[in-house]
Amino acid sequence: FEIPDDVPLPAGWEMAKTSSGQRYFLNHIDQTTTWQDPRKAMLSQM
C-alpha cells in the first residue's frame, strides 16, 4: 500500500527520488538506503 507523503518519516530518515522518479529512503542514523518505506513498519506496529 502507498503511504501519503504527509505522513512523517521516523527520526533520522529522508525520502529521495531517483532520476527516473522512483522513491527511496535514506537512513542517516546508520548510513543506509532502502527501497522499503520505513513508515510501513511503523504503521504496522500501531
Rank of each mutant, 00 (worst) to 15 (best):
39 R>S: 00
6 D>L: 07
11 A>T: 08
5 D>C: 10
45 Q>K: 15
19 S>A: 13
36 Q>S: 10
13 W>C: 05
17 K>T: 12
43 L>N: 04
19 S>H: 07
15 M>W: 06
41 A>F: 14
41 A>E: 07
6 D>S: 14
42 M>D: 06
22 Q>S: 13
41 A>M: 15
40 K>D: 13
10 P>S: 03
28 H>W: 04
3 I>S: 07
10 P>I: 00
3 I>G: 00
23 R>I: 09
10 P>H: 00
15 M>Y: 03
41 A>Y: 10
39 R>Y: 02
33 T>G: 03
35 W>N: 08
25 F>G: 02
5 D>W: 05
13 W>V: 06
8 P>S: 05
17 K>Y: 14
35 W>V: 05
41 A>W: 09
7 V>T: 10
25 F>A: 02
9 L>C: 10
35 W>R: 05
9 L>D: 02
35 W>I: 01
23 R>C: 12
11 A>D: 11
35 W>E: 08
45 Q>T: 07
36 Q>R: 13
4 P>E: 15
26 L>P: 01
40 K>H: 08
14 E>T: 12
19 S>F: 10
28 H>G: 05
6 D>R: 09
32 T>W: 11
24 Y>L: 03
16 A>P: 00
2 E>A: 05
40 K>S: 11
18 T>Y: 01
11 A>P: 15
44 S>E: 14
10 P>M: 00
34 T>L: 00
4 P>I: 15
3 I>F: 15
28 H>L: 07
6 D>P: 02
13 W>L: 00
14 E>M: 03
19 S>G: 12
43 L>I: 15
23 R>P: 12
8 P>A: 11
27 N>Q: 02
18 T>H: 08
9 L>I: 07
46 M>L: 13
11 A>G: 10
43 L>D: 15
29 I>E: 13
37 D>P: 05
2 E>R: 08
36 Q>H: 14
32 T>V: 12
9 L>R: 02
30 D>S: 11
9 L>E: 04
14 E>S: 11
7 V>S: 13
37 D>A: 01
11 A>Y: 13
28 H>R: 09
14 E>C: 06
44 S>L: 11
22 Q>G: 10
41 A>K: 14
7 V>W: 11
27 N>T: 00
10 P>Q: 01
25 F>S: 01
45 Q>A: 11
24 Y>G: 01
27 N>A: 00
11 A>C: 05
23 R>K: 12
13 W>T: 03
8 P>W: 01
39 R>C: 01
12 G>C: 04
19 S>N: 11
26 L>M: 15
44 S>N: 08
40 K>Y: 07
34 T>Y: 03
41 A>L: 10
16 A>M: 09
39 R>L: 00
45 Q>L: 08
6 D>A: 07
31 Q>C: 11
35 W>P: 08
31 Q>S: 10
36 Q>A: 10
21 G>E: 07
26 L>A: 05
23 R>Y: 01
21 G>P: 01
8 P>Q: 05
37 D>G: 01
32 T>L: 11
18 T>M: 06
15 M>C: 12
15 M>T: 05
4 P>Y: 07
18 T>Q: 04
23 R>H: 08
13 W>S: 03
3 I>Q: 00
23 R>E: 09
22 Q>A: 13
1 F>Y: 03
22 Q>I: 08
24 Y>K: 02
1 F>M: 14
5 D>K: 10
23 R>W: 09
20 S>R: 12
11 A>S: 12
27 N>F: 00
30 D>G: 08
17 K>C: 10
26 L>D: 01
21 G>V: 03
40 K>M: 06
25 F>Q: 02
43 L>A: 13
46 M>E: 13
30 D>W: 11
46 M>I: 04
31 Q>V: 02
4 P>L: 15
31 Q>E: 04
35 W>F: 15
6 D>E: 10
2 E>F: 13
1 F>L: 08
28 H>Y: 06
33 T>V: 07
9 L>H: 03
22 Q>D: 12
43 L>R: 12
18 T>N: 04
16 A>D: 07
6 D>M: 08
9 L>N: 01
15 M>S: 12
37 D>Y: 00
9 L>G: 02
44 S>K: 14
11 A>H: 14
16 A>I: 05
7 V>C: 11
4 P>G: 15
42 M>N: 08
8 P>L: 06
4 P>W: 08
7 V>E: 06
27 N>C: 13
13 W>H: 00
30 D>F: 15
7 V>N: 11
7 V>H: 08
41 A>D: 15
40 K>T: 10
22 Q>L: 08
24 Y>P: 00
20 S>A: 12
25 F>Y: 11
29 I>V: 13
45 Q>F: 09
40 K>N: 13
7 V>R: 09
22 Q>H: 11
25 F>W: 07
34 T>P: 01
6 D>F: 06
39 R>Q: 02
42 M>Y: 13
